[in-house]
Design a protein around this nucleic acid. Structure first.
Length: 294
DNA sequence: AACCTCAACAACCGCACATGC
DNA sequence: CGCATGTGCGGTTGTTGAGGT
């Protein structure tokens, strides 16, 4: 990408590429960043730190806006940023979190270390909305949400489970509640078992029972997928969220305030397996049945 | 080889909110 | 309180490369 960006601007255009007459007057540069600009921005962030983006834009000599600098840093230059190969676990988390929060991309991104809101948003648009389009329904429709919840996500879980069968050790951290737990811990706290999950999945579509707790869905997803997620509770604001057996409520725990976490790399790296692979004829049949039931 | 289509990604834009004066 | 400024977020658009015809 950098090569692409670099090749796109000749030394002459390095100082140009202004979009409008107004931009030329203000000397605001737009478009792809060059390696030169990246290095400059990187250097400035090292010196001045993150934030104060307008100041950085001025001090650096970059003919970019503060907003542009911030975006470039967050989405590309930040040292912990991860790009490409969204894993099955990450896909599942995105679906789970989106079903809970909707298009709150930055919030969702908080639970996917190293992923940016922009990347998740792009992922949603290119992969998920594509599925909705293929089903000829709106991505926000009940129809599609049900499809995600009852077909797509269970499929993902199955695949994650089967892929992680060889990694049976289940010490993990609940990515939502952000505290260490084990499968037994979940059971003791009243989480449904995997079998119960399966029962729910084949239950009647449209029943509100499916909506009773996204928290449980997510906890199940985490516990059934060997979602090897390590977390740190430093920052002291990481209040574990209690599992509500009635499934009626779930308080949100904070992951802000210094808590850090990271994915264990290498367990499963199947990001290249597109989700569309999950859509077999049987799924379409299943969906049709559910829709007829409605 | 040329052209077309589409997925993937980077970046911009407008708006909302927070903060300081 | 009102205004200016800075920052963050979500929506949207533009660019590029890969794959198909």
């Amino acid at each position: 990408m950098e090569a692409r960006a670099a090749s796109q601007f000749s030394p002459f255009s390095m100082s140009g590429n202004f979009c409008s007459e107004e931009d030329q007057l203000l000397e605001v540069k737009k478009g792809p960043w060059t390696e030169e600009e990246d290095a400059l921005l990187l250097n400035c962030v090292n010196v001045y730190g993150e934030g104060r983006w307008n100041s950085i834009a001025s001090f650096s000599g970059l003919k970019r806006t503060g907003k542009s600098c911030r975006l470039r840093w967050l989405n590309y230059l930040r040292p912990d940023v991860r790009r490409g190969n969204i894993t099955l676990q990450e896909q599942l988390l995105i679906l789970e979190l989106h079903s809970r929060w909707g298009n709150r991309w930055s919030k969702i991104a908080q639970y996917l270390p190293g992923r940016t809101d922009n990347e998740i948003k792009n992922y949603w648009r290119t992969r998920v909305q594509k599925q909705a389009k293929q089903m000829k329904c709106d991505v926000n429709s009940k129809q599609f949400r049900d499809a995600m919840r009852f077909v797509w996500m269970p499929r993902l879980r199955e695949r994650i489970e089967s892929s992680s069968a060889n990694n049976a050790s289940s010490a993990m951290v609940d990515p939502i509640n952000n505290f260490a737990c084990t499968t037994d811990h979940h059971s003791a706290a009243g989480h449904p078992t995997s079998n119960q999950t399966a029962y729910q999945v084949v239950g009647k579509s449209g029943s509100s029972s499916f909506d009773r707790s996204l928290c449980s869905e997510m906890a199940i997803a985490a516990s059934s997928s060997d979602l090897s997620y390590s977390g740190s509770t430093q920052g002291a604001s990481l209040a574990p969220t209690a599992w509500d057996p009635a499934g009626s409520c779930c308080t949100e725990s904070s992951i802000n305030g210094g808590g850090s976490c990271s994915w264990h790399e290498g367990l499963i790296d199947e990001g290249d397996l597109m989700m569309e692979n999950l859509w077999y004829d049987e799924n379409i049949w299943f969906l049709q049945q559910q829709l007829f039931d409605d």
